[in-house]
Design a binder for these strands. Structure first.
Lengths: 215, 215
DNA sequence: GTCTATAGGGAGATAGAC
DNA sequence: GTCTATCTCCCTATAGAC
């Protein structure tokens, strides 16, 4: 299953800086394994032993690098594999569709965030603050992207605060995020049943069109 | 918190069936406690002891009634507190908004399904089949409701199979469900940040308008 | 710096008391 | 029919070996 790359003896002529390790760093190996198994099993349902076994070490070997199971979770979340940086403004909306498409080919990552985000809504979950912050930032950014796409002339009413202190564009932003999240669960349970990218695009278009009409 | 309604002593003139218990039935008490705590803590993170403690019995006392922890989960899911039966056809769409509104006042139930549905997307989760089936039925019903609202004249293109074998109305149905689910997670993490009913209504309207325009 | 041995405290479920 | 005593297993984390 897990291959352990051979470790060549590294020669250091002078008494230089601390020896660089050929092996990518145990820490990274553990992070990858943890991300995989948190995704397929959830956080609470995963034991340190599950992760340790994948690397042929003991559970305590894992804990050494992260202090606690919670510390490991935090590190996994920070990992954020942003292969491509998210653009700002109107192009961000297209980027969201692309992301949905990409997620269809990475069940592991998709599952990781889908499962953990919902699990974080339980009492005193260690990832709660992380996800709360993430949603706050996402809502703000996507609201900006929507206003950007509408253009200055149509922006007026959509940007103004509405009921509950939220602007229509802000509500639309929450909706877009919600659609993407909700679709992931449906897709994970039944991949044939939904086309995440198509539906995401449809909802974005429908919401932007509605805002453009000033409703 | 949970009130235990008094059980009137039922008089049996003849030597009828086994003696009625004054207490509502242990089974029901356990179900309510389990639903509460599954909601706030998730399924995997909840122990039988957590539930047993609430009723001042031992974990095995709980297991007696349901055989296994999984059996208890299944029973909780079947519980479905459909206070009001969901209508069919176009009124169902209004009912969805009402449901979102009601969910804002029942964090417990909201959390139960939000957390469990995502958790069910993990490997071999006992509730996986239940949620898969639930989504399949919901998508079909809501698709019907959308077509109903569109009316016969506009229904044509929306009902026809599109890319991936799914009709535009079917995609919209998946989107509506996704929005409701996704909003729940955002709302649970930050109740002030989103208005579930408002956003749900907005998305439904935007999607129906789009279909009506034949896009 | 990296990891193992072991502690110490639950977990779910079986078997059987009342 | 209802529940407890108890078994066995597995969990996270500390302390310390190499």
């Amino acid at each position: 299953m897990s291959e352990t790359p051979p470790e060549p003896d590294e020669s250091r002529p002078d008494g230089g800086p601390p020896p660089p390790r050929r092996r990518v760093n145990r820490r990274e190996q553990i992070l990858r394994a943890a991300a995989d198994v948190f995704a397929t099993q959830g956080f609470h349902n995963t034991s340190l032993a599950d992760i340790a076994t994948m690397l042929d070490i003991t559970p305590a070997g894992v804990l050494h690098h992260f202090g606690s199971k919670t510390g490991l979770l935090t590190a996994v979340l920070e990992l954020r594999d942003d292969t491509e940086p998210a653009p700002g403004g109107s192009p961000m909306l297209d980027h969201l569709v692309t992301t949905a498409e990409r997620n269809s080919e990475r069940p592991g990552t998709t599952q990781l965030y889908a499962v953990l985000s919902a699990e974080s809504a339980t009492e005193d979950h260690p990832a709660q603050g992380w996800f709360r912050e993430r949603y706050t930032v996402l809502r703000r950014d996507i609201e900006g992207a929507i206003l950007d796409r509408l253009g200055p002339e149509q922006r007026g009413p959509a940007g103004a605060p509405g009921p509950g202190g939220h602007s229509p564009a802000g509500a639309a932003a929450a909706a877009v995020i919600a659609v993407m999240d909700g679709l992931q669960v449906q897709w994970l349970l039944d991949p044939e049943a939904v086309d995440m990218a198509l539906v995401t695009e449809t909802v974005i278009d429908a919401l932007v069109a509605r805002l453009a009409r000033g409703e």
